[in-house]
């Protein structure tokens, strides 16, 4: 309803909102630049502090927009809860998804041809595998664990097959992969 503030008060909130959001945004940008060493040469904020500051300032902005601009402050508690509480369901989603992302990275790092994932210079496809060897001659020796990658690869392939249920579609690439590894 929003009629809980007088017109003049409402106008003040608007000006206040503009100033607050502008200041917070500038503060965020300064933190980002400080954190990555753009403002003071050679000075980096600790990463955790930078992330903490940026995320909490963004959450504050979000809170301000919802509560003052969208007038959530003046709604009845039931409505507030019915809209805001469901977003808490995302907490576990964030944890689970990001943990998964990290896991993929770790497993790929254990796999032999790590560079497949970071490099994608569009060269002719036939040259692809040889290119990696040229660019990263020392990679094989520095990658820890020669046996682990093969196991991981197999596990991944199997699980894909299991979930897709078109196991035949996957068995073929697996063979190809082995052949490729032998050729090193």
């Amino acid at each position: 309803m929003g009629g809980h503030l007088s017109y003049e008060e409402g106008k003040k909130v608007v000006v206040k909102g503009l100033i607050i959001l502008a200041i917070v945004t500038i503060a965020e940008v300064i933190v980002a630049l400080l954190g990555k060493g753009y403002l003071i040469k050679g000075f980096h904020l600790p990463v955790w502090l930078m992330y903490f500051l940026m995320i909490s300032m963004s959450l504050y902005k979000a809170y301000f927009i919802v509560y003052d601009f969208m007038h959530m402050r003046y709604e009845v508690p039931g409505l507030v809860k019915s809209v805001l509480m469901p977003t808490l369901l995302l907490t576990w989603a964030l944890i689970a998804f990001f943990t998964e992302g990290k896991t993929w990275k770790e497993w790929r790092a254990r796999s032999k041809d790590t560079n497949l994932y970071i490099s994608n210079i569009p060269v002719e496809k036939q040259e692809k595998s040889s290119l990696h060897n040229e660019i990263h001659p020392g990679v094989e020796s520095t990658t820890p664990g020669q046996h682990a990658p093969v196991e991981v690869k197999d596990a991944q392939n199997e699980s894909h097959g299991a979930s897709d249920n078109k196991t035949d579609a996957h068995s073929e690439p697996k063979e190809v992969k082995h052949a490729e590894e032998k050729s090193h």
Binding site: W92, A96, T103, S159, H160, S163
Partner: peptide, 21 residues
């Protein structure tokens, strides 16, 4: 909303995460 990955135990999800699920 917090159990979805039990459909994916065998797809290669992080086994540690699976415990929670």
């Amino acid at each position: 909303f917090i159990v979805w990955a039990h459909h994916m135990f065998m797809s290669g999800v992080n086994p540690f995460l699976s415990n929670f699920f």
